[in-house]
């Protein structure tokens, strides 16, 4: 295995473009090292992107949007004084990944590029309409998060392409997000079901909604029927029931060691309701 630590994304991209065999980018390494250690994936080329300038920065842009460096850890996101006030769901989703120790290393970008359907940060990013900047041989392109994973363990990134930034939209007024996952224990598990909700209100009424589900299909789902179920409502019981039904209907899960089809389908609805309530309260400015 060859180890590289380039000083720019262009250099990283060029290294990846000319590499043969398996290439992996190393950010937090919490997935890459596990795969290496278990002989699941031993890269021929490992490109550590942490020595590139700015990758550890969380920046608020002039328009209120955020740029999060690709090596920013979960711990750094949680500790940021403002990011979590605006995007609590996104920050909490990241914070749910692994232990305190894992939080010291794990990144949004790694969580996305590992392309697990059960990744916690991805549904939250999808709900928040996060995009990523991708640097490749032909320059930089911006891609919505939901277009990155294509199947378990696979992404739409081409050879020579490397994620170079995470772009979080401006929160704007009367908005709120939330992410909940179900795990059997209280910590240290992979999501059996995850659900992200991002809302905007006009008064009591929901005017914008994005609902995402994790671990219930080969990739994270952005479920339009869930959004429809609550748009224009005040999140009354009927809307919540419709939301739960739409979430369950959208599921296309598998039976595996972490949960059954029936369980995931049922709990997706339960979590959608619970997350929506939290996001709604946050959008109203309540503490939740």
């Amino acid at each position: 295995m060859d180890y590289h630590s380039p000083a720019s994304f262009a250099e990283a991209s060029a290294l990846a473009a000319k590499a043969t065999g398996t290439t992996r980018f190393l950010a937090g390494g919490t997935d890459v090292l596990v795969q290496l250690r278990s002989d699941i994936v031993t890269p021929d080329t490992l490109i550590d992107i942490k020595k590139i300038g700015g990758v550890r920065d969380i920046t608020r842009n002039a328009d209120g949007s955020w740029t999060i460096g690709v090596a920013v850890t979960g711990a750094e996101m949680s500790e940021h004084p403002e990011l979590g006030r605006e995007w609590p769901g996104l920050v909490e989703a990241m914070d749910l990944i692994g232990s305190t120790q894992v939080q010291g290393r794990a990144t949004l970008t790694g969580n996305l590029c590992n392309a697990s359907p059960a990744a916690d940060a991805v549904p939250a990013m999808v709900a928040a309409e996060v995009t990523i900047s991708v640097t490749g041989p032909d320059g930089v392109r911006e891609v919505p998060v939901e277009q990155i994973p294509t199947a378990p363990g696979r992404t739409s990134l081409a050879k020579g392409e490397v994620v170079s930034a995470v772009n979080v939209p401006a929160r704007g007024a009367n908005g709120g997000d939330a992410y909940l996952r179900f795990i059997p224990r209280t910590e240290m598990d992979i999501a059996v079901v995850g659900c992200g909700v991002n809302l905007r209100l006009d008064g009591e009424t929901i005017t914008e909604a994005r609902v995402s589900l994790g671990a219930v299909a080969p990739t994270v789902l952005l479920v339009e029927d869930c959004a429809k179920a609550i748009l224009g409502t005040t999140l009354d019981e009927a809307a919540l029931d419709a939301l739960a039904a739409a979430a369950s209907a959208a599921c296309n899960p598998i039976n595996d060691k972490r949960g059954t089809i029936e369980f995931r389908t049922e709990v997706a609805g339960v979590l959608a309701k619970r997350a929506a309530r939290i996001a709604y309260a946050r959008a109203k400015g309540e503490k939740a």
């Binding site: 059997p184 224990r185 209280t186 992979i190």
Partner: peptide, 24 residues
Amino acid sequence: YIYGEDGRLQNSIFLDYRIPVASD
């Protein structure tokens, strides 16, 4: 211990063999 149809152990790491953690 969770075995697949193929008779292989499916959860041979602490991530999936869920012993209680402090917060449990």
